[in-house]
Design a protein around this nucleic acid. Structure first.
Lengths: 212, 212
DNA sequence: CGGGATGTTGAGGCAAGTCAATCTAAGTGG
DNA sequence: CCACTTAGATTGACTTGCCTCAACATCCCG
């Protein structure tokens, strides 16, 4: 029924405009989901990590976006058709997935708000806080964030250019809110200040992300 | 079990940071969903019309955003707790709602892409096409769009200012792509050109919107 | 015929984009 | 172990699309 699989860094779990025949549960590693536009631009709709679900849980089998491994990724895979058939007979699982989906909708509303109404520094602050919340390092003490994705990935997620993202990092460092010992490791030195900058009154509740 | 209700224009179906105790099915009229930020800014996450579902289908009863009637709105309302309990025992309905939710997630990914990677003119073109697709006038012949929402609403949906939206309308009219006999009635004179501008290769498939 | 809400238009400024150069770190092969 | 390559990240100079602010037009509803 289910099978384990390993996707190497930079390989595709599924690709935009092709059929998805499987449903994936991420066990380890990180995946980015993106849409490519006709003019070559890219929008990353989300990053998924351990515990998150992605793949063909939808009416049409056609993939709306591409899922690419940012690191080596271990997943548990199910056949799409089998999975959907199983779902229709098991109200409890179906209900839990529905809750997951509604959580995802709320998370996306947050991101829509971010893209529609925030400027570059605020977007990055929010991104760092959400990352720290979803994938905490050091068990939350001395909060730090590992960023396996590139600056280009972050830019395409936040709707900016690489240069703007880089300048935003510098600004946060200058303000003393963060430290950047390496480009892909961020130490959060002043979480309350980041909260204020991001415009968060509270952190969105923990949830399982759903990528389609 | 269920009851009909009428919400007058400008009244709230539910309000951000309060408990939602009902699930609504829109029968007639249009609703806007928005989030208010601490600094007073507003992001409209979506517009809902006949056939769409909104309300407390989620883990927490707390509303993430506000739902406000743009026109007089007739709805069918269910008690949230009853509805959720009913769902857990009926896999078929639960499954259909899950499909609705995944459709909504894809629609939101489109909007995220719009906000992240499109400029004013392209955003408006896309908005008009989607509106025409979801709420066609004249049965699709001689395509026209009714816009019961204000320019400020459109601006807050597309992540721009009122002025920019107004200028974008003017530009589309100057190009001969649309006509504006009244501010809230748009005649689509050149749909293919609008498609090109919006960066659509194809229109997203028809779906029931889900507002939370 | 006012008066308030909504929409349009214009002038000027600025945040972020563009283009281009430089720096850094991680491989890779001799 | 070191030169060379390359992808990624940073920084700087310049440009621009959109925002801001302000004035004006239009529509509605009493």
């Amino acid at each position: 029924m289910s099978s384990k699989a390993l996707f190497l860094k930079d390989s595709l779990l599924f690709e935009q405009d092709t059929r998805i025949e499987r449903v994936f549960f991420v066990i380890e590693g990180m995946v980015k989901l993106y849409r490519l536009l006709p003019d070559g631009q890219r929008q990353i709709t989300g990053f998924l990590g351990p515990g998150d679900v992605l793949g063909g849980i939808k009416r049409q089998a056609g993939a709306h976006c591409t899922a690419e491994a940012i690191t080596d990724v271990r997943v548990c895979a199910f056949n799409r058709t089998d999975f959907l058939r199983f779902l229709q007979d098991h109200a409890d699982l179906c209900f839990r997935l529905l809750i997951t989906a509604t959580d995802e909708i709320e998370a996306q509303q947050d991101h829509i708000t971010l893209l529609g109404r925030r400027r570059v520094g605020e977007r990055l602050a929010a991104f760092l806080l959400v990352s720290n919340h979803r994938w905490p390092l050091n068990g939350g003490i001395n909060p730090a964030v590992s960023l396996p994705m590139t600056r280009a990935d972050i830019a395409d997620h936040l709707g900016q250019t690489v240069e703007s993202v880089s300048r935003a990092f510098k600004q946060l460092r200058t303000l003393g809110y963060i430290d950047l010992p390496k480009p892909n490791l961020v130490i959060l030195k002043n979480v309350p200040a980041l909260y204020g900058l991001a415009g968060f009154d509270e952190m969105p509740s923990q949830h399982i992300a759903l990528g389609l």
